[in-house]
């Protein structure tokens, strides 16, 4: 558990084993993520160099982690409207301090990696406060494919094999 005065502590996680958490890096997700009411404090773990993906690891529950990314990497036209009440308790000084993440569902197959564009996480990076918001009437859904053209490529490749008599 986290001692109030500790700057760093060891956290047992199911994916990464024991990791050292720098308390100054924690992000408070106000209200937690929907469906995970007991996880309110998270840290962001980088994946590999040049990877657009990151892990959002719960500090409260070592087995709870999500893959997140900047939505603009895959959805350059993504825009969202944040309602005033969604910024409550987020210590807003400047909108410039905010970053947006979306949560990805990977399922295990490359064809069906999806991003939840309807429930993005907004983070005040300066004060390290975040919230998962639910967009209304945005046209965005919970499952937008990251690689929508993969299926076509597979179909094309299969056709080639068929033509060559394979």
């Amino acid at each position: 558990m986290v001692g109030n005065n500790e700057e760093k502590f060891a956290l047992q996680t199911s994916r990464f084993g024991e990791i050292v958490v720098d308390v100054s890096k924690k992000i408070d997700i106000i209200g937690g993520l929907l469906g995970f009411p007991d996880s309110k404090r998270f840290i962001v773990l980088d994946h590999e160099q040049n990877s657009p993906f990151k892990w959002l690891q719960s500090i409260d529950e070592g087995e709870v982690a999500f893959v997140i990314c900047d939505p603009l990497v895959f959805f350059p036209d993504y825009r969202l409207q944040i309602r005033k009440e969604e910024l409550a308790n987020m210590k807003v000084e400047s909108i410039e301090d905010f970053v947006i993440f979306v949560i990805l569902s990977l399922y295990g197959g490359i064809n069906d990696m999806t991003a939840n564009l309807q429930g993005p996480i907004i983070v005040n990076a300066k004060h390290r406060k975040g919230r998962q918001i639910v967009l209304k009437n945005s046209g965005y859904k919970t499952r937008h494919r990251l690689f929508p053209d993969v299926e076509k490529e597979i179909e094309a490749a299969t056709e080639d094999i068929d033509k060559s008599g394979g």
């Binding site: 994916r15 990464f16 993520l33 929907l34 469906g35 995970f36 994946h47 590999e48 990877s51 657009p52 993906f53 892990w55 709870v64 982690a65 999500f66 893959v67 949560i103 990805l104 569902s105 990977l106 399922y107 295990g108 490359i110 990696m113 939840n116 309807q118 429930g119 998962q132 639910v134 919970t142 499952r143 990251l146 690689f147 993969v150």
Partner: peptide, 26 residues
């Protein structure tokens, strides 16, 4: 609300291997 909750649960099943394959695809 339920849809977002369900999607969060689905997303929380991600493993390191899935992440690797997503990165490879990227």
């Amino acid at each position: 609300y339920l849809r977002i909750q369900e999607e969060n649960k689905e997303a929380s099943r991600a493993t390191k291997d899935m992440m690797q394959s997503a990165f490879a695809q990227f």
